[in-house]
Design a protein around this nucleic acid. Structure first.
Lengths: 233, 233
DNA sequence: ACCTGAACACCGTTCAAGT
DNA sequence: ACCTGAACACCGTTCAAGT
């Protein structure tokens, strides 16, 4: 049962020595290239010039590896996030969009960012959300519920929008998928599906990112509507 | 390339003959028992008294099988849903909760219900949402965006809440997972994670279903706040 | 049209053995 | 402490052959 976390504290050792970071970094690259199915311990090991067994010293199994890779990708959202926010709600919006954009660059990652956080960047995300929510003037007893609701929205809806979902393969582009789906909707019985059959052009023309922000703004509007403005000190 | 969909129209044939429905039904049972990894074509074939190859006549591959199984589970939400709704927003809320409850009974299914729907019950869900949204009095050009936003919330957040996410195994219960996570939060540096370290008891004591409805109500509140009441005819 | 089951081409993971 | 690589115990999927 290997339990190591990375390089020894002295920073010595062969420069090409393995560590959890370098393994996870290589995994991200492989995931970007070939998707989750294309990430293989054999292939990853070959890239890193080792045997598959060596990887298990630094990482418990494939699930953990993918989770760590997704968390690394999530971390890139904080680089983009300005963090200096006047308004708390505006800060929440900016943070959410930064996460969406970071995940959008690595579609495989979206569904692996878990909400009750345990990994570093997921923890950081939830903490920032909570801190911003505390500034909105909502009563303290609602902070947890509202913060996790926003966190769930960000990770859950991003995953839903970004992940292919029964993808016929990575070769099919998102646009092609939407066009095909729109064609499918057009063939449905209008008596049974009155809404869908009338909205096929909306499906074809919509923008994923706008879709994300539409729901987000609905959520944040609901927040503002219920928030009591914080009294002056 | 098998393309069949089920029994021949005459309804004849051996009573124990295979069909897509019976295969998907058996898959749901297996998924409930052993989770996604436990669903195997060999095991499924043995249950149905055939060889693995036979299944491929009725189902393209494992991805499609799981997607169909998830859609079957989603369909159970409509049985629970009253469908006779006074208020459109109340109807949306009831529908959303019915979906959450249906998925909560089959955790593996949650992450496989895709939002730009192609399967029967996912189509039905989005159509009902759209029909209800049209009744809220929102301007027509917002119907699509708002409907899909709600649809994304329902499926995305349900998946996030219900799915184990880096589960250490199905043996670990949700409660144990939350307790363990809360303990982890308690060990964090309060200077770095001011919010998380102060909210560990909330995490331990919260209810998943309440969590889902909290965000949902926020979303629906935001909807009501922006909706123009429909003028009388 | 539908089913059979052996075979192909892989996987994740383990573990004795090395350094 | 960390790496090696062969071996184990599986998989999903295909396909010639049957009925």
């Amino acid at each position: 049962m290997p339990r190591t976390r990375g390089r020894a504290p002295d920073g010595k050792g062969r420069p090409d020595a393995l560590s959890q970071e370098v393994i996870v970094g290589a995994a991200v690259a492989l995931l970007d290239e070939h998707g989750e199915r294309g990430l293989t311990f054999r292939l990853l090991a070959k890239r890193l010039d080792t045997g598959p067994g060596a990887l298990y010293w630094h990482v418990a199994n494939k699930d953990e590896l993918v989770a760590l890779a997704a968390d690394q990708v999530l971390g890139r959202a904080f680089v983009a996030d300005p963090h200096v926010e006047e308004d708390a709600v505006a800060g929440l919006r900016a943070l959410a969009v930064a996460v969406f954009d970071a995940l959008d660059l690595h579609p495989w990652a979206a569904s692996h960012v878990t909400a009750p956080a345990t990994l570093e960047n997921a923890l950081r995300l939830l903490d920032r959300i909570g801190t911003l929510v505390a500034r909105t003037g909502l009563p303290a007893e609602r902070h947890f519920a509202v913060s996790t609701a926003i966190s769930y929205y960000i990770t859950g809806v991003s995953a839903e929008i970004i992940a292919p979902g029964l993808s016929v393969g990575t070769d099919t582009s998102r646009a092609a998928f939407l066009t095909r789906t729109a064609e499918h909707w057009a063939t449905l019985d209008p008596a049974e599906y009155p809404f869908l059959t009338g909205t096929t052009t909306d499906l074809r023309d919509h923008d994923d990112r706008d879709q994300f922000t539409t729901g987000l703004d609905l959520l944040l509007n609901g927040l503002s509507a219920t928030a009591v403005p914080r009294p002056l000190a």
